[in-house]
Design a protein around this nucleic acid. Sequence first.
DNA 1: TGATGTGTTCTGCT
DNA 2: AAGCAGAACACATC
Length: 274
Amino acid sequence: MPELPEVETIARGLRRSLVGRTIVGGVCYCPKIVADNENRWLAAVTDKKLKGVRRRGKNLLLDLTGGLTLWVHLKMTGHLYLRTGDDPVEPHDRLIFYFRDHSDQLRFHDMRRFGRVRLFSTADVMNQRGLCDLGPDALEIGPKDFAALFAAHARLIKPALLDQRFLAGLGNIYADESLFSARIHPRRLTHSLSAAKISRLHEAIGEILQEAIGKMGTSVDNYAGVDGRPGGYQSYLRVYGRVGLDCPRCGGRIKRERIGSRSAHYCPRCQRLC
DNA sequence: TGATGTGTTCTGCT
DNA sequence: AAGCAGAACACATC
């Protein structure tokens, strides 16, 4: 499940491999993914050059010449990767862009078809729901704004961290890992945390996201970068997916519990409620 | 065969 | 108003 570090890794891969290149066409095998008039849409990006790639939370914005921006959300099982014209189309490839001068292709692959690739004018794209209502980016927010954000809301911290309107970029993996690192119980209320805990959580989120980006993301459910290489952070996970194993910090037993209708992994011994 | 998990949006409730 | 619960989406995996 791509979260901020995986999306950032993809953004960097695209910047390295495709910025400056011109799209000469495309094909869509799944109208739902483009959520629009597929033919008009693909025709509109033909002969446009990829100018740059931006990331907002878990969203990717591919800025094209002609004042156009492709908005990509990978949701749970979306992938973006490079192939050549010699590579056979794979079963869940949903959308393929062709590039000039090479046989290179950018493919959007999505087993479960929750992902979206949509085209907007660059001026308009940030007004769309899902972008205009994003909270501050988890990697960019400063300590003071972070503390103010938590003080301003009274809600369970785990669902808050997953709410992209509250803070943008974390998903289940990094939310659980960050709470573990800061020794905060996932049921704590946002406004009830001490200044020291808030500060520690802010640091933990920054450290964990940066470290995960350094490892090119976490590969669970087949995540891989645009070059097809899996990430390496899965070896460093301390609570996510480790139910019943020993806590690496205190030796307690890691628990999984439904909190806010999502699974939360934590150590009940070193992440206390009070 | 059927339950599960996953991100987001939507609806409806308190 | 704010936050929460549950449903819906789609499908491989167990």
